[in-house]
Amino acid sequence: MKSVSNPAANDPGAWDAVFVQSRRELIGILLIWLLFAGWVLGAAYLLAYADPDRPVTLVLGMPAWVFWAVAMPWLGANLVIIAFCMLGMKDQSLDDENEPTLEGDVANLS
């Protein structure tokens, strides 16, 4: 019986292309989140929570655990996000793309 909730039941190519790509991007974004959640919380646990009384050393002027568990992943997250935006996200038509932009509106005022 044909499912009314699945346009691709009889034709695998029937899904909307933006929907399919958005779903891929969603999975990619969740993986990025997991990667950095693991890095931040794992490093914080190992370098700080496992032994809170260990002497604090500094790296670039900040506590070493902050450097490895927050500063470095923050830098890494920026690089990964930029790479994902440039390589992992596709430019697709979302319909009605020819409407004027705010920047254009400002230019038109002058």
Partner: peptide, 29 residues
């Protein structure tokens, strides 16, 4: 507090990227 706020390293892509393209398309349709 660096750890408390650390999630902001991925907030831009999670908060904006997770649903934005699809949401924008569905809103247009």
């Amino acid at each position: 507090l660096a750890l408390w706020i650390a999630s902001y390293m991925v907030v831009p892509i999670v908060t904006t990227g997770l649903m934005a393209k699809r949401l924008n398309q569905v809103a247009r349709r």
